[in-house]
Design a binder for these strands. Sequence first.
DNA 1: GGTTTCACCGTTCGTCCCGTACTATACGAC
DNA 2: GTCGTATAGTACGGGACGAACGGTGAAACC
Lengths: 180, 180
Amino acid sequence: MKSKPIRLTGTSYAVLALIQEYGEATSYDLKQMLETSIENFWTVPHTTAYEEPARLAAAGYLSARQEEGGRRKRVYALTDAGRVALAAWAAEPALAPPQLREEALLKTFAGGDPRPLLGLRIDWHREKLAELEGYLAGFEATEGMERSQRTLIAGVGYHRKMLELMEWLAEIAEADTGLP
Amino acid sequence: MKSKPIRLTGTSYAVLALIQEYGEATSYDLKQMLETSIENFWTVPHTTAYEEPARLAAAGYLSARQEEGGRRKRVYALTDAGRVALAAWAAEPALAPPQLREEALLKTFAGGDPRPLLGLRIDWHREKLAELEGYLAGFEATEGMERSQRTLIAGVGYHRKMLELMEWLAEIAEADTGLP
DNA sequence: GGTTTCACCGTTCGTCCCGTACTATACGAC
DNA sequence: GTCGTATAGTACGGGACGAACGGTGAAACC
């Protein structure tokens, strides 16, 4: 059953974790889940939702059941190997350093005018924040947080903090109008 | 002179911008610069400092002058094509969405215990912060900020905000001791 | 003045990842 | 039933990634 050994990356575990959370999922389900929860702290392109589960299934970490009819979707579920690998990874306290790719700051560094760049970013984070807060509202009044709720809270916190950062940097740029 | 057309990515511009900033640089210089300034908002592996300038030189965006002797380093400088491409990109206000890869949050989502994970991250950001604030202190008392100083300020702000986020999440996790 | 040691410097390599561009299906409207 | 559009899914090739290793210089020891 353990066909081809592959390297499991953070993205692999993201997919495994989502499938664990929901029992089973198609690639499209995964895509939705990635976009509405995990993406805030683990950004991946949408093709990941199709490629990564196929890779994981080929290596024995997921089972795949092909549906009949129309879009002949494949439904993925965790195998024991998948469950074990995921649990071992999550329990291990070692962490890779966080990675950020923020083009607004990079363009500013490269000589771009910070004002429009930071402005764009501020708007973007505001929108994200509103969206996530909307999702969160649906959970209100439940006691004892569920994992999906916590995930949203992490996302909300992240966008809030980045928003504060961008606003702060915009102020500094504004104050510093005599450019070098 | 325009040998091979290549796709310029954010990382390409990061390298071009660094070389622009310093006039010319070897790969090792680039590596240092990446690690002490840009990496806070545009994370790249160290091999980028060797591979990317070679690619850019092959495509005509950089000139390369090979030094004699010992480590026969190559010193890169911007060509006109490089300068033009960089300026055009920086002036363009369009932005790709920011990307984050934060393993502490991902592991938490996957079922890991948040306390040690967030604790590790908090320590990590504190260290980074201390390091950058140390660099910044060297600039004190100059009037009119230079670009490298602004870059450091952005880095400092980022780590502060992420530190606040992690501390906030740690509090929430602590308060929520009745686990689901 | 040899040679050991160690930190610094630089590159290779194979796998995986990523964005672009495109195709295909479902379904309601008219 | 055909058109339009949102939804669902794929192919592909260059690029990025990180592990692992190889080279270089110079201080330190003798």
